[in-house]
Amino acid sequence: MKIQKLIRDVLLVEWFRGLSVTFRTMLKKPVTRLYPHVKRQPFPGFRGRQALVRDPDKLKERCIMCLRCKTVCPSNCIKVEVGKDENNARVLKEYSIDATRCIYCGYCVEVCPVNALVLTEEYEYLGDKRSDLLFNKDKLLSNWDDFLANYPGEFYFNKFWRPPGMPEKMLTPQKRNEKPIEIKKKNEEIAS
C-alpha cells in the first residue's frame, strides 16, 4: 500500500490526471454566454424593471389611485400619494417604487384593476447609488417609454394583466377587455 502511494507520488499520477481534465475542457465549446457581447432574450412574462403604463389616449399614467398595489406589496416598496387638484378631483401626486426592496413577485401587476403597472422584460439596469434605483412617477413613465421603444414585437401584452387560469367573471372589465398595445402607434403619439 505504501509502495503504491510512493510510486503514484513519484510519477505524479494525480497531477497528470488533473491536467488531462483541464486539457479536455479547454477543447470543448464553453457552456456560458459571454454576457456583454451575447445577450439573452428574456422569456415572455419575465419580471424586470418596473414601469407605469402610459394611457395611449391621454398620454399620462393609467393609475386610478385605488392603492391595491401598495396594499398587496409584501416588501412594502411602493409609495403612493393622492392629492386634490383645483377642481377638487383626486390626482396622483406621487408614485414611487424602491427597486432595491422589490422582490419582483408580480402581485402589484396582477391586482391592478386597470393594468397601470408592469414589470417589463428589461433586465439591464443598475445604479451607482441607491437613489438611482428609487423610481418616481416620471422615471416609471420613462421606463415604460424606453421599454416600448426597444421592444422587438409590434404588439405588447403582459402575461400578468390577465393571469392564466383566472375565470373571466373574476376579472375587472378593464382586464377583460384589455387589448395588446400597438407599439408603433404608441411611439408616434409620444414623439409628437
Rank of each mutant, 00 (worst) to 15 (best):
L141E: 12
N88K: 09
E121H: 00
L92Y: 13
K39N: 06
D57V: 03
K29R: 06
N87M: 02
G18P: 04
D9I: 03
E189A: 14
D9Y: 12
M1F: 01
P56K: 10
L171E: 15
Q41N: 00
P180Y: 09
A89L: 12
V118H: 09
R47S: 00
R162A: 10
L148H: 00
K2I: 14
N187S: 07
P180A: 14
N76C: 01
R8F: 11
A51Q: 01
S131H: 01
D55I: 00
A191I: 11
Y107E: 09
T100A: 02
K184C: 03
P74I: 05
L11E: 11
R40Q: 15
P180V: 13
K137Q: 10
T32W: 11
T100Y: 07
V114F: 11
L6S: 03
K137A: 12
S96M: 02
N187R: 15
G83D: 10
M26E: 15
E81C: 03
Y104Q: 07
C63G: 13
I97W: 08
I183F: 05
C63H: 13
P167Q: 10
R17N: 12
D145Y: 04
G106D: 09
M65S: 13
A89Y: 10
F160G: 08
M1N: 14
L140E: 05
V38M: 10
T172V: 03
N143Y: 04
K2G: 12
G48H: 05
C77S: 10
K84M: 13
M26I: 13
N150W: 02
W161Q: 01
N177T: 04
V21H: 09
R130D: 01
L67Y: 11
L119Q: 14
K5F: 09
V31Y: 01
L34P: 03
V91G: 09
G153P: 06
V21A: 02
I103L: 09
F46H: 03
K29G: 13
A149G: 03
M1L: 07
P44I: 00
G18N: 08
E168L: 09
Y151C: 06
K129P: 01
V38P: 12
I7P: 11
K79G: 07
T100K: 00
E182A: 06
S20I: 15
S20C: 14
V10C: 01
K79Y: 09
K175W: 04
M26Y: 14
P173T: 02
D55M: 06
P36K: 01
A191E: 13
F16G: 07
L6M: 15
V114A: 04
C63N: 12
